[in-house]
């Protein structure tokens, strides 16, 4: 009974002391590649002309089970509807992806970005500047 125990511990010790074999991911140096269907930070889309796709219909904030989305619509100069403010509270978000599913305009997607830690609690409220796809530079 003692022998198998020692054998087992020896194996453990061997792996433990082996400097060439690292089991865990060395996170800051080594980045994890999320799977294609991973649900990370939201991204608000633009259409081919660079206009925001979101029309502030409010379905995402209504469907959100964690109640983390807040938005307010307004009228732009052309008289079209757009989101004046769009805020996601990432501390509340449970990454369920309902907002993506409900969106009638395909304006919001949960992307791959998972590095959401911050020292400041206020940084966790993501406003439109943070989650809107930047305009592509004209070539």
């Amino acid at each position: 009974m003692i022998r198998p125990l020692i054998q087992g511990l020896a194996l453990t010790l061997k792996h433990f002391l082996n400097p060439f074999k690292v089991v865990t991911m060395q996170y800051p140096d080594e980045k994890w590649t999320p799977y294609p269907r991973f649900r990370g930070l939201h991204e608000l889309q633009r259409d081919e002309n660079g206009k925001e796709k979101c029309v502030a219909c409010g379905l995402c904030s209504t469907v959100c089970p964690a109640e983390c989305i807040e938005l307010e619509g307004d009228e732009n100069k052309k008289g079209e509807r757009f989101a004046k403010t769009y805020e996601i509270n990432m501390l509340r978000c449970i990454f369920c992806g309902y907002c993506e599913e409900v969106c009638p305009e395909e304006a919001i997607f949960l992307r791959q970005d998972y590095e959401l830690a911050s020292e400041n609690i206020k940084d966790h409220i993501y406003n439109k500047n943070k989650i809107l796809v930047p305009l592509k530079k004209k070539k």
């Binding site: 502030a56 219909c57 409010g58 209504t62 307010e72 619509g73 307004d74 009228e75 509807r81």
Partner: peptide
């Protein structure tokens, strides 16, 4: 109202 709110809100 100008798109500021949805009826259910």
């Amino acid at each position: 109202l100008k798109f500021r709110a949805r009826p259910w809100e």
